[in-house]
């Protein structure tokens, strides 16, 4: 067994206390509030997607649902003290960016054809 040379015992004690201070366990109230916000955002997005008629605002509401899901990922990552949740949010951002590029291109194309942003102008697609 090699001799253990601790450079400074007081520094070690300070480290031990501040290590505990640095990573506080997430309070239950904090996680529940965060999850409630995420549920509210997701619900608002869903309600908006169902009730708005403007195609661009409908896509905006899907982005709102993305926000709710991302906040839930961050909150669960905080609860389990794991960075995987944040990595998933990076992928959510990627998918949201790709979706925005494609959806907005599509909306501009549709607007040029019917000169309106109303989703009901394309109601015959569902028949």
């Amino acid at each position: 067994m090699l001799p253990l040379i601790s450079t400074n015992m007081t520094a070690a004690a300070a480290c031990a206390s501040s290590c505990l201070a640095q990573i506080m366990p997430a309070g239950q109230a904090q996680i529940q509030v965060a999850l409630t916000i995420s549920a509210l955002l997701f619900t608002c997005g869903l309600v908006g997607f169902m009730s708005r008629r403007n195609m661009i605002v409908m896509f905006l509401c899907t982005e709102l649902m993305f926000q709710g899901a991302a906040l839930a990922f961050i909150a669960f990552g905080r609860q389990h003290m794991d960075t995987s949740g944040q990595v998933f949010v990076i992928f959510i951002l990627t998918v949201a960016a790709a979706e925005a590029a494609l959806a907005l291109g599509l909306v501009v194309l549709l607007y040029r054809r019917r000169a309106t942003l109303s989703a009901e102008a394309w109601g015959e697609l569902g028949e």
Partner: peptide
């Protein structure tokens, strides 16, 4: 969360 929900209410 209050600010977020106010914004969401305005969006929809």
């Amino acid at each position: 969360g209050f600010v977020s929900v106010c914004g969401a209410a305005q969006v929809l």
